[in-house]
């Protein structure tokens, strides 16, 4: 028997390694996937641009002198851009501290038998369709907020955000930009919380123990090791959440009663966002109006791109001290 046993086959050269073929296939696949994404993105951008041209420059690309809704495209789109950015920024401002707080509670404070179910519930919240959030915001949250808005106006009315808009009084329905922002904040909370929790949990035990062995309390340990370690991750989580808030259509469309731009967050019939504007008007739009809406979509695309590039930049600035080395 022994004589018939063959020795395990050895690689013959130094250049051919076992599994090299697998490596090639895999790197090919990842390359293909990456290229596909870029190509799709480029097509979307090209489509948006071409379809937007009549609105961006009516005299060159259409037989009209100006667009339908305003004197120039910028006059038309800047209030929408401002509304979109404002609603999303407020939503993120509200959601981020809460997400970090809950994430930290689950990862570092709660006993495991509480942490696990709380984590599941948060993940479940992420699965609720946005129409449901919209309906909840419109019928339940908005009326509930009316007295609070009145209070804000009475006592903090000197801040432009809580002042009455010109020619209108404080909302009586609650369907304002601030309500939309709060609904957006609730909507992005699950994803932001989940990501924060994951990031906090990845802080190396090694470094946490180093802090504790120096006599750090739990909170000091978190400030010393968890937050610095998680900084890049938190930025990414916030940006993902921001991306979702920027593009959110249904909830805002249902909650907000839109109108012209105003700094006042607590007046109905003021402000609007690009996605809601598109959703409300696209079905009946044709010709120049359609070009306007698509051009507005292009602006949203650019805003989102800028947000993501900023995030990348923030993350990369601290690479050397990130613990990745």
């Amino acid at each position: 028997m022994n004589s018939t046993r063959t020795a395990p086959e050895r690689p013959r050269g130094l250049t051919v390694k076992n599994g090299a073929a697998g490596d090639k296939v895999f790197s090919g696949l990842t390359l293909a996937a990456g290229v596909t994404i870029l190509v799709v993105l480029a097509f979307v951008a090209i489509f948006l641009t071409i379809e937007s041209l009549p609105a961006l420059s009516p005299s060159l690309f259409s037989d009209q002198d100006s667009i339908d809704s305003a004197d120039s495209f910028w006059d038309y789109v800047w209030p929408l851009m401002a509304g979109t950015v404002m609603a999303s920024a407020i939503a993120i401002l509200l959601a981020t501290p809460v997400a970090i707080g809950i994430g930290l509670y689950i990862s570092h404070y709660a006993p495991r038998r509480i942490a696990t179910p709380v984590g599941y519930v948060i993940d479940l919240l992420a699965a609720i369709p946005s129409v449901v959030y919209g309906a909840w915001g419109m019928t339940f949250l908005a009326p509930l907020l009316v007295p609070i808005y009145q209070w804000l106006n009475t006592y903090l009315g000197w801040i432009p955000l809580f002042a009455e808009a010109e020619g209108a009084s404080v909302t009586s329905t609650g369907r304002t930009l601030l309500t939309a922002s709060i609904v957006l904040a609730v909507m992005v909370l699950p994803i932001a919380t989940s990501l924060c929790r994951e990031i906090f949990l990845q802080t190396p035990k090694l470094h946490q123990e180093a802090a504790q062995a120096l006599g750090a309390t739990r909170w000091e340990m978190i400030k010393m090791t968890v937050f610095p370690f998680a900084r890049a991750g938190i930025v990414s989580a916030v940006m993902l959440a921001l991306g979702r808030a920027l593009g959110e259509t249904m909830a805002v469309t249902m909650v907000l009663s839109p109108g012209v731009f105003s700094l006042s967050l607590i007046t109905s019939g003021r402000n609007g966002t690009i996605p809601a504007e598109i959703a409300l008007n696209f079905p009946e739009a044709f010709g120049m109006r359609q070009a306007e809406l698509i051009a507005a979509g292009l602006m949203l695309f650019i805003i989102t791109l800028l947000v993501n590039m900023t995030a990348r930049w923030i993350v990369s600035r601290h690479k050397e001290f990130s613990g990745a080395n």
Partner: peptide, 22 residues
């Protein structure tokens, strides 16, 4: 325990300087 640990320092098996600090 926090007070105890500030009196009794510890060096670990794997070097663990804080990576985000100089």
């Amino acid at each position: 325990p926090v007070t105890v640990r500030s009196m009794v320092g510890m060096v670990f098996q794997r070097p663990n300087p804080f990576p985000t600090m100089s």
